[in-house]
Amino acid sequence: MNRYFTFLLAFLLSSAAFAQNGYRIGSKVENFTLKNAQNQSVELNSFKDAPVLVVVFTSVNCPYAKLYDGRIQSLSKAYAGKGVRFVYVNTNIGLEEGGEAAQAQPDLPTSNSFPYLIDEGQQLSKKFGATKAPEVFVLQNAQDGFYLRYKGAIDDNPQAEAYVKDRYLATALDAVLAGKSVSSAERRATGCLIKRF
């Protein structure tokens, strides 16, 4: 009986540790540097003029990411006047032909009005704890760096924008811009699973 209890306790602790990978709400986000489509280095600190930064983990090969692209572009335009910036981070989700090689020069959308960065080796998605594409992370800029305020889904209906009832990302942005805490700071994202390599 004691052996069974010990095994169960160890399993629960390891499961909890696995579930808490990545930054937690309220955590300070470390500066990072990724390459953009032009092979130029872009770091988190280069967005220090923005009061809020939305990091969108995505994939050019994910159908869910394609469904959400227009919505993300619309949100970017709607909140640009309030200083909110968006950045796409393309991470290898396991659908790409040739793995890392395909990630080096992806076929990026040309309509994007914000940076599109490449997460080589999935280093940044691991650090953030991103598990799906698309998945968003709202970072609030403070004097000493960026802090995570929301992570997860963009809204409650990935397939039909017309039937969206809860706009999680917009609600989170409104709260952060108003200096309030986000009431539901974590929402499970729906999208393509990011397979770890």
Rank of each mutant, 00 (worst) to 15 (best):
L13F: 10
F47R: 00
T91F: 02
N112Y: 03
K165H: 14
K28A: 12
N92F: 02
N112S: 14
L117W: 02
V29T: 07
V138G: 03
V138M: 06
Y147K: 09
V52Q: 02
A16N: 09
Y150W: 04
D144C: 06
L148W: 01
F18M: 13
A162S: 14
F32A: 02
S59M: 06
I93L: 01
K126N: 14
R187K: 13
R71L: 13
C62S: 12
S15I: 12
N36W: 01
Y4C: 15
L139H: 00
T58F: 02
F146G: 01
E120Q: 04
V29E: 10
S113K: 05
V164K: 03
E96P: 05
R187S: 12
R24F: 06
K82A: 15
T171W: 00
E97T: 12
Q73I: 12
I118E: 07
G179I: 07
A178K: 07
Q38S: 10
S46G: 04
D69P: 01
K132C: 11
Y64W: 11
K82I: 07
E100P: 05
G99V: 06
A104F: 05
F137R: 04
L95R: 02
S111F: 04
K132S: 10
R187G: 13
P134N: 01
G22V: 08
A101G: 13
G145A: 08
G22D: 12
S76F: 03
G152Q: 05
E186M: 06
Q103Y: 01
S113D: 14
N45I: 12
